[in-house]
Computed example of a mutant assay.
Amino acid sequence: MITAIILDTDTTKECIANLISNYFESQIKLYEVATTVLCGVELIKTNNPDIVFLNADLEEESNCFLNDYFKDTLDFEIVIMANSKRHAFNAIKRNAFDYLIKPINKIDILSIVKKYERKLSEKQIGTTHHFPVYPKILPKIPLATSNGIKYIEEFIFLYAKADGAYCEVYTIDCKKITLSKTLKEFEALASRNNFYRSHKSYLINLAHVCELVENDGIIILKNNQKIPLSKSRKEVFLSRMANNSIQI
């Protein structure tokens, strides 16, 4: 079972506690809820949790960064809860395990559970087979531009949009990269990633899907970007998303 602590001051702490209680009681044991970084440090030392859900604003307001208190002894994962994608990207740069954009729902929590379980599984495989330990390198996507090749981490890719013989890539840190490839060519390049061609003009990162408005055929991403979903692609989209969803 995954153990967790929530470090937050607003209503998000009650939201996450309720989600865990209602949907993840058999997967997550919630120890405590702290409202200051210093209190959270003490709770972490006492309970040794697997995951700490941390409000990004709390760290910035107090100028007390959780990583600084543990440094080389940090043996838990930090999940940043942010109000905007700017805060989220700053969190990722501080080596957070993952981020959640408020308001947070059960699918968000499930994604954290799945990701943590994958990490444990990979760690177990490495231990069992005595694989050498190498520095962690995040998956990168090569993007061919007019100036050469840009490499971006898979997790910051939001979506790509067709633009004639080119396509535009949008990232969570509000950047647009114009590629010297068509969307179809980029889709082939990105086929090994968790991406999906939702429409003839759009390719999305399924990890950033927040909502489906079925009547309108619209997918909403974590940054509130609305992406069209073709009727002919809806069934496959739902099937892909079901693999990372829970039944209610």
Rank of each mutant, 00 (worst) to 15 (best):
K115Y: 03
N105P: 00
D98W: 10
I104V: 07
F97G: 08
Y116Q: 11
D98Y: 11
E122T: 11
S111F: 09
E122M: 14
Q124A: 06
T128R: 09
R118I: 13
Q124D: 06
H129S: 06
E117S: 12
I125A: 01
L120W: 03
I125K: 00
K102Q: 07
R118A: 10
E122D: 13
Q124C: 05
I112R: 12
Q124L: 08
L120C: 10
H130A: 08
L110Q: 15
I125V: 02
K119S: 12
I101A: 01
K106R: 13
D108G: 08
T128K: 09
K114R: 05
L120V: 06
G126R: 02
I125Y: 01
L110N: 15
K115C: 04
N105R: 00
H130K: 14
I112C: 11
N105T: 00
R118H: 07
K114M: 00
N105Y: 00
K114E: 00
I101R: 00
K123W: 10
L100E: 10
D98E: 12
R118S: 15
L100R: 04
Y99G: 02
K102Y: 07
V113N: 05
K102A: 03
K115S: 05
T128G: 07
I101P: 00
I104R: 02
K114H: 03
K123H: 11
T128C: 13
K102F: 11
S121F: 09
E117R: 07
K123P: 09
K115Q: 06
H129A: 03
L110P: 15
E122K: 15
